[in-house]
């Protein structure tokens, strides 16, 4: 199965929203700053609920905040070619 790589524009959106701090975003979404930092650095993929709460803060669509890329599994590709 192909791998999904999820990325986000939270850092950019924070900047465009009066340079909102990670702490402010954390407070508005009801999570810790650590979680916001992890999401921004793509170390954690939020649940749908949190993802929607983040989009609500920025008044943006889900796809404006989060995006994904399908990455083919290299090892599987090599197996298929054999």
């Amino acid at each position: 199965m192909a791998k999904l790589v999820i990325s986000n524009n939270i850092r950019k959106l924070r900047f465009y929203n009066n340079e909102m701090t990670q702490q402010e975003l954390a407070k508005k979404t009801g999570v810790t700053r650590q979680t916001i930092v992890a999401i921004e650095n793509s170390k954690y993929s939020p649940t749908l609920e949190l993802a929607f709460r983040i989009t609500e803060v920025f008044e943006a669509k889900l796809e404006e905040v989060f995006s994904y890329e399908v990455v083919e599994d290299k090892s599987k590709k090599e197996d298929d070619s054999k």
């Binding site: 701090t21 810790t32 700053r33 939020p46 609920e49």
Partner: peptide, 20 residues
Amino acid sequence: ESIKDTYQEFEIMEHEDEMD
């Protein structure tokens, strides 16, 4: 502001969120 962030963090972090 950065120090303000640090102490506000202590106030919120007592609870566990979904990542925790």
